[in-house]
Nucleic acid binder design. Structure first.
Lengths: 157, 157
DNA sequence: TATTGTTATACTCTATAACTATA
DNA sequence: TATAGTTATAGAGTATAACAATA
């Protein structure tokens, strides 16, 4: 009965007729379904590493030498600040990232990846790339670039 | 401190630098953020009608004369069957949709919109169209069509 | 006074297993 | 034996308010 027990990508013959419906051209529906398909697939690939998309994105930004504050992470990832606390808690307890008080503003914590965190991130990038390649399978190289460009426009607009 | 208290579309100057990071070209991150922005906006527009994106999509398919079963809704919307139960329960209690046993397979419920449901759906379509127009503001007409085409490819692939 | 991070809390969303009725 | 729907439940994701430290 669980959704995982059915193929998450293709639809059965019985449900295909719903694809012709007006909802199928609704941006809200399309982004929600694209994200659901992609997140499920990516979480499966990340599972052996003990990561999910949620924790991966925090680790990715911690690895990128920008030393973001928790506030910046919350804003960029569109998560509540209280959610960042528990995501960073988890990564910190596993020795993957470290909090460091920002000397310029001692209210802020700057998040940095450890060596161990960077090593795991290298593996995680491969897992995410695998998932992404599967998602983009039906698109040409040009279309892949164009999709990302257009998604960026609506994700940050 | 809640995420709603910050602008959900534009980023503050402090977070803009994160946009240059490699994560910003990650498909998983882009679809997640595009969906988060879009769902938040659409839920705000739907709120006066007592709907959310989740309930809207069920109502939309119920209005489309295809008489989907709950199973088909679950599959198409990528929700668990048990979630469809509570969404249909809510819409049914409000007199917006009706369950009817499928005479060809008496295990199945066919979901149909009532007149009241169709009337509300007309208003909801306008609300969703408003939200979508805001999301697509930065795209040309051609780009809007192209984005939906490419999203369809990854959402159903 | 305002902001960063934190904690506690509650609410929504999603998944799992067990049940019933039909097939 | 398998499938559609239901129920109960638990876990993940998200939002809100209040607080301490700092600005």
């Amino acid at each position: 009965m669980a959704a995982e027990h059915i193929d998450e990508r293709r639809l059965t013959a019985t449900a295909i007729r719903l694809q012709g419906r007006s909802l199928a051209s609704d941006l809200e529906f399309l982004t929600a379904r694209a994200r659901a398909v992609g997140t499920r697939r990516a979480n499966e690939k990340l599972e052996p590493l003990g990561l999910k998309v949620r924790s991966y994105v925090v680790l990715a930004l911690a690895c990128d030498d920008e030393q973001p504050s928790q506030r910046e992470l919350a804003e960029f990832l569109m998560l509540d600040a209280s959610q960042i606390v528990s995501l960073v808690d988890d990564l910190e307890q596993r020795g993957l990232v470290a909090r460091e008080v920002d000397p310029r503003d001692r209210r802020s914590n700057v998040i940095m990846a450890t060596t161990k965190g960077r090593q795991l991130f290298t593996k995680a990038q491969r897992a995410i790339a695998d998932a992404q390649d599967e998602s983009l399978r039906a698109l040409s190289a040009t279309e892949q670039v164009e999709l990302k460009r257009l998604l960026t426009l609506i994700a940050f607009e």
